[in-house]
Design a protein around this nucleic acid. Structure first.
Lengths: 344, 344
DNA sequence: TAGAGCCTAGACAACGTTGTCAGTCTCGGT
DNA sequence: ACCGAGACTGACAACGTTGTCTAGGCTCTA
């Protein structure tokens, strides 16, 4: 009892079930039974084993367990940037679902780099995660084919998979953008700018498509110079915005293609004298406290994550199913900036 | 070449090195050598093996590898809430450092629940992560002793470990809060409120201590009703703020103990007629765009994460060292809300 | 041409766990 | 006293990989 644990291990080595068994004077398998709460162990034996576990500070090695059992009880999440506030709620939602299914979450940021995405995904597969939730950076996911065939459940979120048949959970980017632009039109705007993310990115293209749809449905022409797709770096957005706002036919309203663009545009408009209307895709914290408060097309990031993760575990729980495309609605939240009338 | 892969595996099973070896007509170990880029393989043999790998869609099973090698090349990060914008840059920074060291990041949210923290940490240990970065929720980490002894490098961030000797990386919470409150005092305030997080949380207590220090250094009394520690839920903060602002001796300025409190307070002050000065601990996006822009004590979350992760890998790279406490400076960013004069 | 030395390759054990199976012990019924 | 049933328990193989060790073939030199 007061006897201290003495081990013969090299430093850094951890006690194994074998060590526990030796100390408790029982067989290896009995320790395994105790550790896993399997039946068929006398209370007395169990107590001895528990004491040995306690004394040695034993902790089951899940790597070995995984090797034996085949399942890792962990899922991987690959997204663009952990630090982006849009992905916070999403990953949290995925984590909650994973937790509810007793799984851990391993995640990484692709930094919007397809090679890095692939590297990460394959590293996760090598770890034998049971499933993957991927917000794709690249547009060709054929490299995943062997993994899918091998049974790694995979769900894509926010953007569809490229050249491969897989589940995907999306927001209605087209419809959301169309609604947002239509909202500006309804408030009298005729010249509306669009500043979006890189054309490589599916959401950017879809939202641009929504913009064009709204304009054309209203019979409004679109001047090439009103549209700008590219990096969301503040400098790039600033340049684009300044061009759009100062050309021969300056716009009276801007539709911002995502939260980062919106924030930069807000900064720019704050320094401007004439009011320019603004609707942004993605809601963001404090949007309601700005003056004017920012009208947005909100998508429910947490719901995206939750839906994807649930779909994932649904697959893991057996139900083999054909790939499905789930699209979530967006919601227009009028707050002021999108209701400003045009100022010529 | 055009021959399709035919396998005898049960569905869901993945090819192993043995399968690859059989197909390539070589020994198991040769496959291992090719997969790991070890020398001593003829170009011709290597090609045959590569073809077999390709054809079968083989991917090394890292679980087995880990079991054999002892290191998992992964580290765990336990924080309070992935969705909290404060932790985004922090986890991203940890991830970057991990990546630079070829390690993956496994993370989870403790939801500020000590039991859940322990559960998570131990699950990570069972996975045999090489190291841990922990933002503690609890205040007793003796449960980690066997792990530390077994060589799991551990660094605590943002708050110190409880009842255990371990590395910790902190912001200067005391100094930062003192500076912030002193700033308000310098602008003429005498009655200053403090709304902070739960007293269980180290940072909350330290910041409160800073508040008291600044007040006492200025020879100002502190009325009990001016101070409120508790949950950061908006309703709680709102109640606290309303009490502080409406008592017999209403405050003319508020020091908000963290970003969530600050945001809620901003909302409340926006509905108020009389101007109330505000300094918040933690910077947040768009703080500069609010009117008035919000003066904050900024801590560098990314730097916290980076420092902690680097310390972790430093330990993993051999250097056994005594536990160290690293404290990072905070920075006062005056933006307007903290420079408002008192309005009686 | 024989022997040394090098390069390539494979057999085998080990990592720590779990599933299978067989052995021992106890107890109750006859 | 004996047998069968049932409850405990442990020996052993297997999971897929890597480290060690040895074998075989080749080249090079004396």
């Amino acid at each position: 009892m007061a006897e201290t644990a003495r081990t013969e291990h090299r430093y850094g080595n951890r006690p194994t079930m074998k060590d526990v068994a030796a100390r408790a004077g029982v067989g290896l398998k009995t320790v395994s039974r105790v550790v896993n709460g399997e039946p068929g162990v006398t209370p007395d034996t169990e107590r001895r084993v528990q004491e040995a576990i306690e004394a040695l500070g034993f902790r089951r090695n899940d790597s070995a367990r995984v090797l034996r059992k085949g399942r890792t009880a962990s899922i991987g999440l690959v997204l663009e940037d952990l630090a982006d506030p849009f992905y916070g709620p999403l990953s949290r939602a995925v984590e909650e679902v994973a937790r509810a299914h007793g799984a851990l979450l391993i995640n990484g940021s692709s930094a919007e780099d397809p090679d890095r995405e692939q590297e990460l995904v394959l590293a996760l597969c090598a770890r034998r995660v049971d499933g993957l939730v991927v917000i794709p950076a690249g547009d060709d996911h054929r490299y995943l084919e062997p993994e899918l065939k091998a049974g790694v459940a995979t769900v894509f979120v926010d953007r569809p998979a490229g050249r491969i048949d897989a589940d995907v959970v999306l927001s209605d980017n087209f419809g959301g953008a169309r609604d947002g632009v239509a909202h500006l039109i309804a408030h009298g705007h005729r010249r509306i700018g669009f500043i979006g993310d890189q054309p490589r990115i599916h959401t950017a293209v879809e939202r641009l498509r929504g913009y064009h749809a709204a304009m054309s449905e209203a019979g409004l022409p679109v001047h090439d110079s009103w549209v700008s797709l590219g990096s969301t770096a503040p400098e790039r957005v600033r340049t684009a915005a300044e061009a759009i706002l100062s050309g021969p036919e300056p716009v009276t309203a801007i539709f911002a293609g995502n939260n980062r663009v919106t924030v930069t545009v807000v900064r720019i408009l704050a320094d401007l004298e004439r009011p320019v209307a603004l609707v942004g895709f993605d809601d963001f914290e404090l949007a309601d406290l700005l003056r004017p408060a920012v009208t947005v097309i909100a998508q429910d990031a947490a719901q995206l994550g939750r839906t994807a993760a649930e779909r994932l575990f649904h697959r893991l729980d057996g139900a083999p199913d054909t790939a499905r495309r789930i699209e979530l609605n967006t919601r227009l939240i009028p707050r002021g900036s999108g209701e400003l009338p045009p100022a010529n």
